[in-house]
Simulated assay, not measured.
Amino acid sequence: MAGSKHSSKETSDPKKGRIVIFSSVIVIVLVAAILVMIFSNQNREEAKPKKQPTHRTEQTARIDYQGQPYIGSSNAPVKVVEFSDYHCPYCKEFEETVIPKLNNDYVKTGKVSFYFINNTILGPGSVLAANAAEEVYHQNPKAFWAFHQAVFQAQKNEKEQWVSKKLLTDIAKKTVPSIDLKAFQNALDTKSRQNDVDKDNAMADSLGVPGTPYIFVGDKAVEEAQDYEVLKKAIDSALAANK
């Protein structure tokens, strides 16, 4: 029988085998190198001091006295602040019963400076009156208090919309003879002092003011300060702490 022929070699090519082995070694080395790099990076990251999640720290809000109407000496050792609304009957009561005592006992004696800041919580009339008062203050700071007191005196039932442009203009004419009526009426028509009012309201919000009138002695809120004896005690305590 004639011998059969084979189309392939019976034995493997040694050169080809060496190439396969060499390629496999290179792949293994590369994989090992990648793993080493990954492991090293992880170790470096773990070695770094990790930043703790930062949370917004609640800081005690502070009263910004700049640009606010006040009576008394700017150098008085204690500042008393009222957040108030011209439409609020309790604010009217505070103005008529507490402020005169505060003025006589502490402001005139140089112990306290008293600041008034808007907190317009009772609607459009409150906002309009606040704009009017801000315009008067910017025109004539000394005349502010006469206008301020007259607005409270004109106050009617809080359920009535008693604040009007005419009323405020009439009060301005009587209490501030030098008033620039054109600018004053523009403030009423366009609420050109609304930025100042908004700033006051934002401050009240940041301080957590719950209503009006609300009183601070220094940076400390005084609950029930409509009672003059309570307010007096808080002021005396602040004065003693400032000695």
Rank of each mutant, 00 (worst) to 15 (best):
H6C: 09
S8P: 03
K9A: 15
K9F: 14
E10R: 10
T11M: 13
T11K: 14
K16T: 07
V20T: 11
I21S: 04
F22D: 04
S23L: 15
I26V: 15
I28R: 04
V31W: 02
A33P: 03
N41D: 14
Q42I: 15
Q42Y: 13
Q42F: 13
E45N: 14
E46W: 05
A47N: 12
K50N: 08
P53C: 08
P53H: 06
H55C: 07
R56G: 08
T57N: 09
E58F: 12
E58I: 11
T60C: 02
I63E: 10
I63G: 06
Y65E: 11
Q66K: 11
P69A: 13
Y70G: 01
S74D: 13
N75H: 11
A76E: 04
V78G: 03
V78A: 04
V78N: 02
V80W: 01
V81Q: 02
V81L: 04
F83E: 04
C88D: 08
Y90K: 06
Y90G: 10
E96K: 08
T97V: 11
V98C: 11
I99V: 15
K101A: 08
L102P: 01
L102R: 03
N103S: 14
N103A: 05
D105G: 04
T109C: 11
G110D: 10
F114M: 06
I117E: 00
I117Q: 09
N118Q: 09
L122T: 07
L122F: 06
V127G: 03
L128N: 02
A133W: 00
A133T: 05
E134K: 07
Q139S: 07
N140K: 02
P141N: 09
A143Y: 02
A143K: 03
A146W: 02
F147T: 01
H148M: 02
Q149F: 10
K156E: 13
N157G: 14
N157T: 13
E158I: 11
E160H: 06
E160N: 12
W162R: 04
L168H: 00
A172C: 06
K174V: 02
T175G: 01
T175D: 00
T175N: 00
P177G: 06
P177A: 07
I179D: 01
I179P: 00
L181Q: 15
A183R: 14
A187S: 14
A187L: 05
D196N: 09
V197E: 00
D198M: 08
K199W: 04
N201S: 08
M203T: 05
M203A: 06
A204H: 07
S206M: 07
G208T: 14
P210V: 15
P213Q: 08
G218W: 01
G218L: 06
D219C: 06
A221M: 12
E223I: 13
E223Y: 12
A225I: 09
A225F: 08
Q226H: 13
E229W: 03
L231F: 08
K232G: 08
K232W: 11
K233L: 11
I235P: 04
D236W: 03
S237M: 12
A238K: 12
A240T: 11
A240N: 10
K243Y: 06
